[in-house]
Write a protein that binds this DNA or RNA. Structure first.
Length: 477
DNA sequence: CTATGGCACGGATT
DNA sequence: AATCCGTGCCATAG
């Protein structure tokens, strides 16, 4: 209370600083979605603040086209794969789709084995949204609201066409994009289609057994009945090769998209559901081509440029009265907000620059390559307070080049790499290894942890103890 | 007797 | 100051 009066009297000095710091902290803590709400509410409350239709790059101030980020700042200087491009990407369309999936929120598929109640339709929608045109999004939304618990599409494509007055090929295009999202094959109409999608994806980077496409698309019945001999005879090949196909399927593919990386997504007994908001950061390869430089987009919600209404300013000068005090306050508040948003952007950019540099192999090659770093280290390097980094990281999410959306805090997970390696070890084990064995095996990788810790990691990953894995192995073999 | 999970402690991290 | 994390000890189930 008394603080307000104090500020009123000494406004010529800089009482800004304390308010400035406080607001920067709050803004930094907010996700992009929350920031959008904040801006909206400020706009409606504060007459001095104005949103003009003039989109400008938050970094260089250039005029921007109606869509997309700054063409100059988002361009690489070289094609050197070591380079990363970090830029602020003002988006207005990005957030309008959260929670839009229609009438029946109760129909959200829920895997009984998963304690995490992620909402599959929104999760997928967030991944594809950036890639879609406006009319495509409505189709995508319709597709995603008609998924069954296995992640299959249980509505006729023709119905979608009728509803949106569009062609089947258009729907197919959207569907194709959806199918390549994280629960790979989601939105397929049946097991066969889901498997084929997964194979297509895998074949881009891996070698796949011959005959696999054909067996799945034509003879999936025989395959599932394990009639390997008959199948081999029909295709004129050896039983051995057919068995390879079967093995590959059981090891690398998942017939039910919703159960795969989606359903048994670790942490079985964790009752903290991870709610993924819209990603705050997008990381991708330039032109979506692996090997190209990385492109980091820091999403900032905006439909234009925020500024102080010049008319309001003029009115303040001309008019003197009891309102003047009030108006001046409004102007100060508005300019403060604008400054703080700039600062937020700047901090996020610096943070991502250094974070991506450090964790590049993790981003490109996966969890095993995550380096253990702490927020303090980053804070020292950027010469800011640790809490700044904490605020910037907390609650934010990042979308990786493989379209997975992860919490930004994952970059600071000290044990993720070890857990990933452990998973590999257990995956490739010849016999069910007990925790002591796993510990030794990890030691060969140069990782020393206590036996008890192995048990903990196992629990985190939802891996059963050795004696129970034995049963599982026999069941699948 | 062995493998595993629960509890709690201390140090690091936020 | 509060929280998280790895670890040691011990009880218990198999």
């Amino acid at each position: 209370m008394s603080l307000h009066r104090y500020q009123g009297q000494h406004q010529t000095q800089s009482p800004m600083t304390s308010a400035h710091i406080a607001q920067t902290m709050t803004l930094l803590y907010m996700t992009s979605t929350e920031l959008l709400q904040k801006i909206d509410s400020e706009l409606s409350k504060n007459p001095a603040l104005e949103l003009i239709n003039d989109r400008r790059c938050p970094m260089c101030g250039r005029k921007l086209p109606a869509q997309g980020p700054c063409p100059v700042c988002s361009q690489p200087k070289t094609m050197d794969p070591d380079e990363t491009i970090v830029f602020i990407s003002p988006r207005d369309d990005f957030y309008s789709y959260s929670g839009q999936h229609s009438s029946s929120p109760n129909e959200i598929p829920e895997d009984p084995f998963s304690a995490i109640n992620l909402d599959l339709p929104t999760y997928v929608l967030r991944q594809v949204a950036p890639e879609l045109e406006k009319d495509e999004r409505e189709i995508a939304a319709m597709i995603l609201t008609n998924l069954d618990e296995d992640g299959f599409l249980n509505i006729d494509i023709r119905d979608i066409c009728r509803f949106h007055h569009t062609s089947p090929s258009k729907v197919e295009t959207v569907l194709k994009k959806i199918q390549r999202c994280d629960p790979l094959g989601v939105g397929s109409r049946d097991i066969v289609e889901a498997l084929l999608v997964q194979i297509d994806f895998l074949s881009e980077t891996n070698t796949i057994p011959e005959f696999i496409r054909r067996t799945i698309s034509e003879d999936f019945n025989m395959l599932s009945k394990r009639q390997y001999h008959e199948l081999a005879r029909k295709l004129g090949t050896t039983t051995q090769k057919i068995k390879l196909v079967a093995q590959f399927i059981s090891e690398n593919l998942n017939p039910f998209p919703a159960h795969a990386s989606w359903g048994n997504y670790r942490q079985p007994n964790e009752n903290t559901p991870e709610v993924f908001n819209q990603p705050d950061i997008l990381i991708s390869f330039l032109n979506k081509t692996p090997g190209n430089p990385l492109v980091i987009e820091i999403i900032t919600p905006s439909r234009g440029t925020l500024r102080i209404n010049p008319l309001f300013k003029k009115a303040l000068k001309e008019q003197s009265g009891e309102n003047q005090e009030e108006w001046k306050k409004d102007i100060d508040k508005a300019s403060l907000l604008i400054k703080c948003i700039q600062q937020r952007n700047n901090t996020m950019r610096q943070l991502m620059e250094i974070l991506v540099a450090r964790q590049k192999s993790f981003i490109i090659h996966g969890e095993t390559y995550l380096e253990p770093i702490t927020r303090v280290q980053i804070a020292d390097e950027l010469d800011v307070h640790e809490s700044t980094i904490s605020r910037a990281v907390s609650n934010k999410t990042v979308q990786l080049p493989n379209n997975k959306i992860i919490p930004m805090a994952t970059f600071f997970d000290r044990s993720l790499a070890v857990r990933a390696i452990m998973r590999e070890i257990i995956q490739n084990e010849d016999y069910p290894m007990n925790d002591t064995d796993v510990r030794q095996s990890l030691q060969k990788h140069g990782i020393t942890v206590a036996r008890r810790t192995v048990a903990k990691y196992r629990a985190m990953e939802g891996i059963l103890p050795a004696h129970l894995r034995r049963i599982e192995k026999f069941a699948t073999a």
